[in-house]
């Protein structure tokens, strides 16, 4: 494979968004690529002198992907021996394969965990990217144990499910699991928090740091304050202690 085909440059408002966009476009995970930051970008004042972030993704071991795809074919075959779940929407046909694979995977995991719940799987909006995320909604009675402390359980469930679905498909797809609309509620909460902190920063003039958060939650804060004319945000520290700081522009 030529150098050009294994390297991709992406430009986006921030490094984090650029990486996320690049991985989506390539259909790969962070483990599959080397990330090189070419330009961290600059926010600028009132949109003046701002510069977008620029990164390069280099694909590690370019032949690996093909092997994976072949092997996944075998896995899919072994999987078909398992008893099929009866599912109304499955009979409709013409369903994207990532949706049916995701449904099958989550149903098996929940069944092994002895969880009874309503599961719905669909493709989400493709957020100016080509890859549409797979959205899994789990609803039912007393499911808070599936969310866990600091979303630990729901994140573990989402991580394992997305790994399995990615392998079955032979390509990575963004996948999000929600339980009892927890993520929506959390997003609303974070947006509110972000605006409150921004107000405090403006009135005191002092920089503030939020609690450490996972990447998806930091992203919500960055986006919420992106168009705020008075403050700017930056993530500092290393995961899992990485946190958003808010300061005056």
């Amino acid at each position: 494979m030529s150098e050009e085909r294994t390297k991709l440059e992406i430009i986006a408002p921030s490094v984090e968004e650029a990486v996320e966009k690049g991985l989506r476009d390539l259909g790969l995970t962070e483990d599959d690529v080397d990330i090189e930051v070419l330009d961290e970008g600059k926010k600028g004042l009132l949109g003046l002198g701002s510069r977008q972030a620029r990164i390069a993704l280099k694909i590690k071991g370019a032949s690996k992907k093909k092997d994976k795809a072949e092997k996944n074919q075998e896995l899919v075959k072994t999987r078909e021996v398992l008893p099929e779940e009866v599912d109304e929407s499955k009979k409709m046909g013409a369903e994207p394969e990532e949706v049916s694979i995701a449904r099958e995977t989550i149903n098996i995991i929940l069944e092994k965990m002895r969880v009874t719940a309503d599961v719905s799987v669909r493709l989400g909006e493709s957020d100016d990217n080509r890859v549409q995320p797979v959205l899994i909604d789990i609803e039912g009675k007393d499911l808070s144990f599936l969310i866990g402390r600091k979303a630990e359980t729901i994140n573990a469930l989402q991580f394992v499910t997305s790994l399995i679905v990615g392998r079955e498909l032979g390509r990575w797809v963004p996948l999000q699991i929600d339980v009892q609309h927890y993520r929506q509620r959390r997003e609303d909460e974070l947006r509110k928090l972000a605006r409150r902190i921004a107000d405090q920063v403006v009135s005191t003039g002092r920089k503030q740091a939020l609690e450490p958060m996972p990447p998806n939650e930091r992203r919500i804060v960055h986006i919420e304050l992106r168009d705020n004319p008075d403050v700017e945000t930056e993530s500092v520290g290393e995961d899992p202690k990485r946190k958003v700081t808010v300061r005056l522009k």
Binding site: M113, F145, L146
Partner: peptide
């Protein structure tokens, strides 16, 4: 997994499933 992430996720799901019974 990287940094034990896969193993720990499996353990998290396992503990939740065990606690239920």
């Amino acid at each position: 997994g990287k940094g034990g992430r896969v193993a720990n996720s499996i353990r998290t799901l396992l503990n939740v499933a065990a606690a239920r019974e």
